[in-house]
Design a protein around this nucleic acid. Structure first.
Lengths: 189, 189
DNA sequence: ACCTGAACACCGTTCAAGT
DNA sequence: ACCTGAACACCGTTCAAGT
């Protein structure tokens, strides 16, 4: 990649992060190009679809969640590992308005630029869930896809102004449904 | 209302129902007017906002849910009443793509044409919840707003192609979190 | 009273023309 | 190789002009 192209690429990404954080996942691409001081065609050249842009924006964070899951697998008890990982994922995803809708769609669409990220997240979550299930700490009638769905629902809720204030509480309600060990009450980490 | 105006009003509503069912809540208003054979200004005259149109479309169904809740209060056990009402509400809302996002926003906005509908739904749900709580059948650390949020999350999930196939199961997971009586397992009605 | 559609300011997406 | 911006087909919303 030519030096000027690379500079454009990086700058678009930085601006996109700001604009998407402000206006959510449906932010105007024209606006992003404008604020990046770049032609609209340049944005499209580097990121042929909106999802390609989001993917470039979010990939590193998703990777961190994968390594975090591996760490938790040896550092924490199975139930704490699962719940604390879930809490972090939900909190992060809840930061970008509407990203969870895009992820849910991308999960079903192998052509989506975000599909791979969905799969790695699902894999990481599935492993934490399986470990908790093996020790009798999580209900066995759910799989990694169910976990993904519940996490997405919680992220969606924490995106809604009307439920955001109670997001913590709603999280603990759903966490209590996933975990088998009812005696520990709320699950704060 | 003049006879021709009333005819337009009804026809727009009927067409809107079809188009919104097809394309979801963000369907093109221009398209609705076009398919109704009516000028765009006429649609705006009868329904000044998109939410006014949705409200007119959905009001009667919401009213039915309110009377249904009252019936269940005497006809069923508190836990069955709560769960079966919830299931119906979730199933209905899940029929209109994106409507649950609009409802969540409308709940916080007293100016929204859908605000009153949200409130009546919340009231109906709150009463069923309170009755179950009073008999020790539902967890007491949640209120009507939490119930509304969980129902919305379930409707959102049943709207997503990736989770829709498991919607029933996800419903039963969350229902099990709301109910205290763990021994009854899945809650089919 | 009520209806119509042009007008305006925005989109996403593509692509010929430039360097 | 890469960048630009005009062009096209769509929106939502408003409002002067018609009946």
């Amino acid at each position: 990649m030519r030096a000027d192209a690379k500079k454009n690429y990086e700058h678009i990404l930085a601006v996109a992060n700001v604009v998407v954080t402000e206006h959510g996942v449906d932010a105007s691409l024209r606006d992003i190009a404008r604020r990046a001081g770049v032609g609209l065609g340049t944005l499209y050249r580097h990121f042929p679809t909106r999802e390609a842009l989001l993917e470039a924006m979010l990939r590193s964070s998703f990777d961190e969640f994968t390594t975090k899951a591996r760490e938790l697998e040896t550092a924490s008890s199975p139930d704490d590992a699962l719940v604390s990982w879930l809490r972090d994922v939900v909190a992060f995803t809840g930061n970008y308005q509407g990203v969870v809708d895009v992820m849910m769609a991308a999960k079903e669409d192998p052509e989506s630029a975000l599909h791979a990220s969905c799969m790695t997240m699902r894999t990481a979550g599935t492993q934490l869930l399986a470990r908790a299930q093996a020790e009798g700490l999580a209900r066995t009638d759910m799989d990694g896809d169910d976990l993904f769905s519940l996490a997405a629902a919680l992220a969606w809720l924490s995106n809604q102004p009307s439920s955001a204030p109670r997001a913590e509480h709603l999280f603990s309600i759903i966490a209590s449904a996933i975990l088998t060990n009812r005696s520990s009450g709320n699950f704060r980490v």
